[in-house]
Amino acid sequence: MKYTLLLSTLLLSLTACQNTNPQILDKNTASHSNTSTTVKADNTTSNASGNYNKSIRYKDFSARVVSTPDGNGGYDLKIQPMGEKVIERHIDDPVIDAAVGDLNGDGFYEILVFTQSVGSGSYGNVIAYSSNKGQSWSEVSYPELPSKLTQGYMGHDKFEMVDNVLVRQFPLYLEGDTNANPKGKMRQIQYDLNDGEASRQFVVSEVNEF
Rank of each mutant, 00 (worst) to 15 (best):
D102K: 03
L77A: 07
I96L: 11
S122R: 15
D93P: 06
I96E: 10
Q80H: 13
Y109G: 00
V118A: 08
E139R: 05
R89N: 15
Q135E: 13
T115L: 05
E84H: 14
K133V: 02
G134Y: 01
E110Y: 07
K85Y: 04
L77P: 01
G105N: 15
I111D: 06
A98P: 05
D76V: 06
D76S: 14
V113P: 02
I96F: 12
G83H: 10
E88H: 12
V95M: 03
D92R: 11
E139G: 15
S130W: 07
G105I: 02
G83W: 05
K133P: 09
E139M: 13
G83N: 14
S122N: 15
G119Q: 07
I79W: 05
M82W: 11
M82S: 09
I127Q: 10
D97G: 13
G101I: 06
E88W: 03
V86E: 14
S136T: 13
D106R: 09
D92C: 10
I79T: 04
L112A: 03
G105K: 12
G134C: 02
G83C: 11
K78C: 01
D106E: 12
E110S: 02
K85I: 01
W137S: 02
D97Q: 11
V95T: 00
V113A: 07
F108N: 11
Q135V: 03
V118H: 13
V113K: 00
V100G: 00
S130Q: 05
G124K: 01
D93K: 13
G124T: 04
L103G: 03
M82E: 14
D76H: 09
S131Q: 15
V100I: 15
G119L: 08
E110V: 05
S136F: 02
I87M: 09
G134S: 06
Y123E: 02
L103V: 03
Y129I: 07
Q116L: 04
P81Q: 14
I91T: 02
I79F: 02
Y129E: 04
G101L: 07
